[in-house]
Write a protein that binds this DNA or RNA. Structure first.
Lengths: 191, 191, 191, 191
DNA sequence: AACTAAACGAGACGGTACGTCGTGTCTTTCG
DNA sequence: CGAAAGACACGACGTACCGTCTCGTTTAGTT
């Protein structure tokens, strides 16, 4: 389909990996604010053009690097109760988000999504909404089982969960510990 | 103390206002990503030095502009019930945050707070934590009245409320309508 | 010897001509300053490598294109007098050099010969010195007939003739009209 | 007039001189083909913008550097005879043009004048035509004294002199020695 | 009234990074 | 195996802003 055999040199996988690796290193070392395309190119031994050819912005490189390194795919548990599913889902999410370099990167991406509208669209569609969909499945099943309080839409439940997580990440910068999972479960369970 | 009468020319209030006005105009016209100190100076007919003299970064100018224009101070209601207090507090908050230019500015500031650690500190202390404190009073009173579910800390309640708001602002970009207030109240009330 | 039947595909005459034609078109359209190998390849529908394979620089392509298009070979007249020979030689030269695209190309080549020493060497040997030799024959015959002023070397006579032509081309950019031939003849004839 | 007192920082003479010096050094070391604005800025410890602010192209920087270093103003002699005036004028010219770095620079400027039409105009008006005017005075006086051959216009005389010099510089690259002056005088004197 | 001191608009300065263009090379596929 | 297509590392381009630094000017106290 997309990989029909075209003439011409093929994209260098080696360069691609070097770019992603260099990007993560640089963000870890000096923060997203100091990340530059020029710097990535220099560190990875690549021409700038090679970066511009394949990614529309440095935030996209970073998102790609994050996705390639940390497998962001979180399995959707199905254990028969909201309590169990949510605990497991959040536990897995915390595991990722608590690693400081991953947390820093997520912060930077969410920030850049606000400042660069084009990237914002991609970030929402390729990252945020996928996570929403995953949680959505869990919530839908819980609703069918009658585990959710009436008067609170499924969308809102999802917003509350991710909202709290992101708020801790962005605003209070407290580690999103184990306790939070229990509190959210308590709050969201029908009583 | 600080404002002891010193010799020399006084700070020009006219320049200050021109800078803040120009800043808001420019953000409204082309977005925060296109905001530059150079542009603010040109638009407001001011030397760049005058901006650097009084604000540490362009985000600080913007925060100042926002505070000067929209009164961000939200009164802390005390109507005797969590339901009433929260509804009123959120209603007042939505009023502000639903005006698109204000929402855009808040998004930009939260974004910049992630990217520029120095500004992040100021933004948290001078803006985010003040809002938290206001809501904290409401929550504390509700707790005393036993209106809150057990097993959920006051901090978490606050995180849930603001988290949901910010998440809608930053991630889903849905208008934070009236309905949300009711849903949050329902969720947070002891049952 | 050199054209022994070698294995492999033969050089494509079609590509060669397309390259030369494209080169002349591009110079005519936007000037030598805007001429690029990349542009020639694109215009002629040829891979860049094909150009690099057969010419050492874009100036060489242009020189080749000029030689292929305008026959630069000027016959050496022998009419028995310096006056007649020189008039005829210069007339034929002017015919060529007054066509604006040819003049522009010559200017560009002489310029590039100054900037790129490698090409300079080739340009001198393959173009400039051949023209010198042609005029040299005329001058030598005139000298034998005693038509040249004493005290002026043959080399200088040639330098004066070509120097004046090139100077008009490069510096004053005046059309090298008919009159000039007469004046040069007058100046160079023994009196 | 032009130097009316304007607000703002003044142009830095130190930077200007550093730029001109660096330019000459770089041309001398690696040739005009390797001269870059970037290189000049680096060598002179100046920002690129400072160069772009004051000169329209690197050739203009070089022309300025040449004019500042070697005083290109050649005095117009008036000794009463074409022979004496011309000998002196050419002698002074040779002195300059025989210094290899000056010769190389002149070659490069004349070349660039062909490739960049904008610079070409400036080079002709600010350099070539001034030299022509100087020689023009000498020729005019000679004409009044009847020292020039009839049938050869003053403009052509000038073209012959400068043409021969430039041709030697650009094409044969022979040193323009003393002998040439004598031969030109012989050729141009009425007989 | 003279003096001092700070803030002001203007704008040049040394820098850094941008995103683009062209170079010359290398790799792949096709004829 | 030549030739198209096109990716690659590299280097320079010319521009935009950064934050700093003079300038000459204006405005307030302080002597």
């Amino acid at each position: 389909m997309t990989d029909q055999s075209r003439p011409g040199r093929k994209r260098s996988e080696q360069s691609r990996l070097a770019i992603l690796a260099a990007t993560l290193e640089l963000v870890a070392e000096a923060g997203y604010g100091a990340l530059t395309i020029e710097g990535i190119a220099a560190r990875s031994g690549v021409g700038k053009q090679t970066i511009y050819r394949w990614w529309p912005s440095k935030a996209d490189v970073l998102l790609d690097a994050l996705a390639t390194k940390a497998d962001l795919q979180i399995p959707i548990p199905d254990e028969g109760s909201l309590r169990a599913d949510l605990t497991r889902f959040l536990g897995r999410t915390f595991e990722l988000g608590d690693k400081s370099p991953v947390a820093d990167t997520l912060r930077a991406l969410m920030a850049q999504a606000q400042i660069d509208p084009e990237f914002g669209k991609r970030f929402r569609e390729e990252f945020l909404f996928r996570r929403r969909d995953a949680l959505g499945r869990i919530v839908d099943r819980a609703r069918e089982r009658g585990e959710l309080p009436a008067g609170v839409g499924s969308g809102t439940v999802i917003d509350v969960v991710f909202g709290t997580l992101w708020y801790r990440l962005l605003a209070t910068r407290e580690p999103v510990g184990r306790g939070l999972a229990g509190e959210l479960v308590a709050l969201l369970s029908a009583r």
